[in-house]
């Protein structure tokens, strides 16, 4: 814990807090990976403030928000270096369970394993 804490602190001092515990930088050798899923039917997911969040173990989350005039995409293409990844997707909306607009999120989808050669 202490070692990780110091590692994070060092990164923080270098102005790279977001890199702590994950990495999303891309290199030319990375491969394109297209992730697709079924559309959610909640209006909140398919309107302003809604969207999907993709979690890839060891990487920064990928946000796929609703786009005006387009809708909420159900696929996205990312670049990943060689490796094996666990991926899940969440759906989210602006409406919360108190009738407000602080947001709400689904449980994760079933995870899949993605192997990038």
């Amino acid at each position: 814990m202490t070692r990780l804490f110091r590692y994070c602190a060092a990164l923080l001092l270098l102005g790279a807090l977001s890199a702590c515990g994950s990495s999303s930088s891309s290199t030319p050798a990375d491969r394109a990976v297209t992730l697709s899923w079924s559309q959610n039917r909640e209006s909140g997911v398919n309107s302003a403030g809604g969207g999907y969040r993709i979690d890839i173990a060891g990487r920064d989350p990928v946000d796929v928000p609703w786009v005006p005039g387009v809708g909420t995409p159900t696929s996205t293409t990312i670049r990943l270096p060689s490796g094996r990844y666990t991926v899940v997707v969440f759906a989210y909306a602006a409406l919360d369970a108190q009738g407000g607009r602080t947001g709400n999120e689904s449980a994760p989808s079933q995870s899949i394993q993605v192997t990038v050669p």
Binding site: L35, V87, A91, S106
Partner: peptide, 17 residues
């Protein structure tokens, strides 16, 4: 809470280009 409930997405697939 019913109105705010969001189903977990389904059908997640990946294609490596």
């Amino acid at each position: 809470r019913a109105l705010a409930f969001i189903e977990a997405p389904t059908g997640l697939t990946a294609r490596v280009e």
